[in-house]
Design a protein around this nucleic acid. Structure first.
Lengths: 192, 192
DNA sequence: CGAAGTCTGGACCTATCGGTCCGCTACTCC
DNA sequence: GGAGTAGCGGACCGATAGGTCCAGACTTCG
């Protein structure tokens, strides 16, 4: 059967995610990936294909780990508005302090439109998935009578997505947490 | 005195702006610039310095031409709300049809944090300038009694900036104009 | 005229890019 | 032990990256 794999494919991929996340696709060289992943150049190509293939896998990995975290924050019991507020405030806090590198998906859609085939589709699916979570949360609030019966959950979820994307960019421009928290409150006041 | 310059420095710079705008700093090679600007490689370096220097000049050029356009749209007579609505709707339309390349400033702040010294500062100033226009517009509406006397024009202008940045990203993800127009209406409903 | 300045074509530099290949070792199965 | 697989060190590939330099053609000045 031969020698078994020594490194954990998933663990090494995570390190690639971090590198791509920090510097983007164009800003990351294969040499950087070799260094950060800790495997040989040839192993990288044997295991993941090309740089673009690795990037797509990294996007998928990033996407699912982000979804898990978001789902944990959004798919829970309680008043929808409170859950939403906590989610947005926490996002702002992270973007302004720890995760100042922003969002890999937004980085990708903004900088490489068509350089990596399949990248754009992944961004679209990623965003739609998150929007779905927000819509479900809104729907629950609507069903429980917390929000008006006339609320267009589809439109409002899209509004919130735009808001969120704006916060990611805004935090990249200025790490002024208080300012962004004020924006969050205004956004919350806007929905019903 | 010697031979005078044959090409118009500003006109050639505009072509550099378009190239950088379309592909970003990292995605644009010097060869692309030489081709699009129509001048010799050596002339480029003699006239503008380095690629990074040219990029900074391109940012300044982009910034001022954007500000001119925005000022023309925002600094006019009429109801503030109508002016704002028209500005946002028009922006969405452009982002979804003609200017699908998005915004050079957002591209820059998202992809190259510190690669080009001075780039980040330019983005910050650019955004603050636009926010200033929005704040002035809000203040006029507040003075004329159109908006509530309690309105925090600073906070609301920041909310609108976040909204705008979100729309730029959102349009890059999906060119669904109708969807984004709905978001614009929700944002307008939010402010007083 | 000749010095000074402006442009171009194109060669040239070094460094790095993404990607491939070879030779060797380590390991596990039959 | 031998076949088969996984990994590494490191050389290597052609292409391109950003950047420099030179010779020559051109134009305006004193």
């Amino acid at each position: 059967m031969g020698r078994p794999k020594e490194f954990d494919r998933q663990e090494v991929l995570h390190r690639a995610v971090d590198t791509f996340w920090a510097r983007g696709f164009e800003g990351t060289s294969v040499q950087m990936l070799v260094d950060s992943m800790g495997i040989h150049r040839a192993s990288l190509y044997d295991t993941y294909g090309s740089k673009a293939d690795l990037f797509k896998e990294a996007m998928d990995c990033y996407s699912s780990q982000t979804h898990d975290a978001f789902r944990q924050a959004l798919d829970r019991e309680g008043k929808s508005r409170d859950i939403l507020r906590h989610f947005l405030r926490d996002s702002v806090h992270r973007l302004c302090t720890v995760q100042t590198q922003g969002c890999l998906m937004i980085k990708t859609v903004v900088s490489i439109a068509d350089e990596v085939p399949g990248a754009h589709d992944r961004v679209v699916r990623h965003m739609e998935e998150i929007r779905g979570m927000l819509r479900d949360l809104l729907q629950r609030g609507k069903d429980s009578g917390e929000f008006a019966a006339e609320m267009d959950v589809d439109a409002v979820s899209h509004f919130l997505m735009t808001m969120f994307e704006g916060l990611v960019v805004g935090a990249a421009v200025q790490h002024d947490e208080g300012r962004h928290l004020g924006t969050v409150e205004l956004a919350l006041k806007a929905i019903a």
